[in-house]
Simulated scan of single mutants.
Amino acid sequence: MFILSLTYLKSNDEADRHMEPHMAWVNEGYAKGWFLASGRKVPRTGGAIFAIGDRTTIEAYVAADPFTTHGVAAYHITELAVTTTVEGLEILKR
């Protein structure tokens, strides 16, 4: 599993200008089966996505995020070897 932590490099107003294409990118990640959960950080300084899949594929996909290509946010990708979950979250152990 991967934790994709993004931090805004530009203002929230600038992030809002790119939010629609970013959300289309997020929704495509869900459609591909790679994204499991996502949301904004509180306070709103960026966001986070829980993802599964191949690291090289995830890294390439992150590079194509409109937030990345427009310099709105930078990603930090952390790989987590999940060993224990509550019932129903076994998919995280991939």
Rank of each mutant, 00 (worst) to 15 (best):
L89M: 15
L36N: 07
D54S: 06
I91H: 12
E14R: 07
S5H: 14
I52F: 02
D54A: 05
W25K: 00
V42C: 07
I3M: 14
A74P: 00
H70V: 02
A81E: 12
H22I: 07
G47P: 00
L80V: 15
T56A: 15
A81N: 10
M1F: 07
H22V: 04
F35L: 03
T78N: 08
T78C: 02
M19E: 12
A74F: 01
K93L: 03
V82R: 11
I77E: 05
A73G: 01
A31R: 14
K41G: 01
A37M: 12
V82W: 10
I77V: 14
H18V: 10
A31D: 15
A60D: 13
A51H: 05
S11P: 11
E14M: 05
H22F: 05
A15W: 08
T69C: 05
N12V: 15
P21R: 03
A24S: 11
N12H: 10
S38V: 07
G39P: 01
I49T: 09
D54P: 04
R94A: 10
G47S: 06
H76E: 15
T45F: 02
S5T: 12
T45R: 11
E28L: 07
H22E: 09
L4T: 07
F50H: 06
G71S: 07
G47I: 08
E59Y: 03
T78G: 02
L6Q: 08
T83M: 10
D16C: 05
D16K: 13
E28C: 03
A73T: 04
L89R: 13
M19C: 06
Y8N: 03
T45M: 09
W34Y: 15
A31M: 10
E59V: 04
R44C: 02
M19N: 11
N12G: 09
A48G: 11
H76G: 03
A73I: 04
A24Y: 09
I49V: 15
R94Y: 08
A60I: 02
T83A: 14
G46K: 01
T7P: 00
T84Y: 12
G53N: 05
K32R: 12
A15M: 12
I52V: 14
R94W: 11
Y8E: 09
F35C: 01
Y8V: 02
G33T: 03
E79D: 14
G39T: 04
G46S: 01
V62P: 04
E59H: 05
N27D: 13
T7R: 10
T57C: 01
R55M: 06
Y8F: 15
R40D: 12
A37S: 13
I91V: 15
A60R: 07
I52Y: 06
T78W: 01
P43C: 02
M1D: 06
G88D: 11
H22P: 00
V42N: 10
R40E: 13
T69W: 11
G39E: 09
G33L: 03
H22M: 00
M19R: 14
V62R: 01
